[in-house]
C-alpha cells in the first residue's frame, strides 16, 4: 500500500526534473529525429497516466524497464549492486547498535563522570559531522597515515571470490569456509561501515543515555535496589528493556537514513554499491533507473521498520496485549 503511494510520488517527481532524458541519453550530436524516435519508444510523448499504467504493468511482472545509462534492465543493475550496499548498511547498523547502545548505558550508569562527558562529546561529533567527512578522516588516519587498513574497495585485487549465495561477501565467504577472503572483506568494510555508522552511533548513544536516565528515575528501579539487585543487573536487565522501547524505534529510522548516507560513503571508498548507480541515473535523468532505485530503497525501509516494530512489540508487552 505504502509502496504504491511511493511509486506514484517518485514517478511524478522523476518526471519533474528538468531536462529531456532522451536528449541526455543520446548526447548533443544526435539528430532531432533520433531523439523523437526514442521519446516515442519510451512513451514519453504519451500522457503521464498512460506512462504510469505502463510502468505498473511492467512492475508486477518484475520488470523495472531498461536503464538509459547502462542500457541493461534496471532490475539487473540493481541486483548486481544492491548486495554490496546492503552489506555495508548492515555492518554499519551493527556497529551503531553494538557500540552506541552500550556507550549510552555506561554514560547513564556513570552520569556526570568523565566517561559520560567523553561519550557525550563523541556522540555530538558523530551527529554533527557528515558521514563522508568521517569517511575521509578515517581513510586518512587508518589507511594512509597508519596504513593498517585498505584504503578503498570491497576486496583486494588478488582475493578469491566465494560462491555467490547471498551476495554478502562476509556471509558467503564464511559459509564457504574461505577465511582468507572473509578476513580481507572484513578489513575492507571496517572503515566505510564505521564512517557510515558514526551519525547513528551518536544518536543511539544519546538516546540510550536519555531513556536509561529516565528509567533510572522510576520507582521500579528503586524497588530493584531495595531488593538487593546489583547495579549491573539493574542496568542490563531491569532498566535496559524499558529504555530500549523508545530507542529502537528511532534506531530503525536511523538505519533507513544510512541508506541515503551510504551513497556518499560509497563514493568516498569506491564501494561498488548502489551509490554510483543511483547518482549516475539521477544526473542522466534515467527515469527507469531513478524510479527503480528509489522503489528498492523504500521497500528496504519498510521491511526494516516492520522488523523493528515486531522487536518493539516483543520488548514492550503492553503493545502486544493492547491489540487483544
Amino acid at each position: 500500500m505504502v509502496l504504491f503511494g511511493v511509486s506514484i510520488l517518485i514517478f511524478g517527481i522523476a518526471r519533474l526534473i528538468p531536462g529531456d532524458p532522451a536528449r541526455i541519453a543520446l548526447g548533443p550530436m544526435a539528430s532531432n529525429e533520433q531523439v523523437e524516435a526514442m521519446r516515442d519508444r519510451l512513451l514519453l510523448n504519451e500522457p503521464i497516466t498512460v506512462q504510469y499504467l505502463n510502468f505498473i504493468k511492467n512492475l508486477v511482472q518484475g520488470d523495472l524497464g531498461t536503464s538509459l545509462y547502462t542500457r541493461r534492465p534496471v532490475t539487473e543493475d540493481i541486483l548486481s549492486t544492491l548486495p554490496a550496499t546492503f552489506e555495508l548498511v548492515l555492518a554499519a547498523a551493527l556497529i551503531m547498535t553494538v557500540v552506541g547502545v552500550p556507550l549510552g548505558i555506561l554514560a547513564a550508569r556513570y552520569r556526570h563522570s568523565g566517561l559520560d562527558i567523553a561519550a557525550n562529546l563523541l556522540a555530538l561529533l558523530g551527529v554533527v559531522t557528515p558521514s563522508f567527512v568521517w569517511g575521509i578522516f578515517l581513510m586518512l588516519l587508518f589507511a594512509f597515515h597508519l596504513d593498517i587498513l585498505p584504503i578503498a574497495g570491497r576486496l583486494s585485487r588478488d582475493a578469491v571470490l566465494p560462491p555467490q549465495i547471498t551476495g554478502l561477501l562476509l556471509v558467503d565467504s564464511a559459509l564457504a569456509g574461505m577465511w582468507a577472503t572473509f578476513w580481507d572483506a572484513l578489513r575492507h568494510i571496517t572503515l566505510p561501515a564505521t564512517a557510515l555508522a558514526m551519525g547513528g552511533l551518536g544518536t543511539a548513544a544519546r538516546l540510550t543515555r536519555a531513556n536509561m536516565s529516565e528509567v533510572y528515575g522510576r520507582q521500579y528501579i528503586q524497588l530493584a535496589r531495595a531488593f538487593g539487585y546489583t547495579e549491573r543487573e539493574i542496568a542490563y536487565r531491569y532498566a535496559l528493556r524499558p529504555a530500549m522501547v523508545p530507542t529502537l524505534t528511532i534506531l530503525g529510522l536511523d538505519f533507513a537514513i544510512m541508506l541515503g548516507n551510504a551513497f556518499l560513503v560509497e563514493k568516498v571508498f569506491a564501494w561498488p554499491g548502489m551509490a554510483r548507480y543511483g547518482v549516475e541515473v539521477i544526473i542522466r535523468k534515467d527515469l527507469n533507473g531513478i524510479v527503480g532505485t528509489i522503489l528498492v530503497i523504500s521497500a528496504f525501509f519498510l521491511i526494516i521498520n516492520m522488523i523493528i516494530d515486531i522487536i518493539v512489540a516483543y520488548m514492550n508487552p503492553r503493545i502486544l496485549y493492547q491489540n487483544q
Partner: peptide, 25 residues
Amino acid sequence: GWQGVRGRQISMIFQDPGAALNPVF
C-alpha cells in the same frame, strides 16, 4: 554490603504499586 542486606533482612513496600513494578516483566 547493602546488597546482602536489602530484600533479605530489610525490605520495603512502596507507595504506588502501579509504578513500583517493572512493566516489561
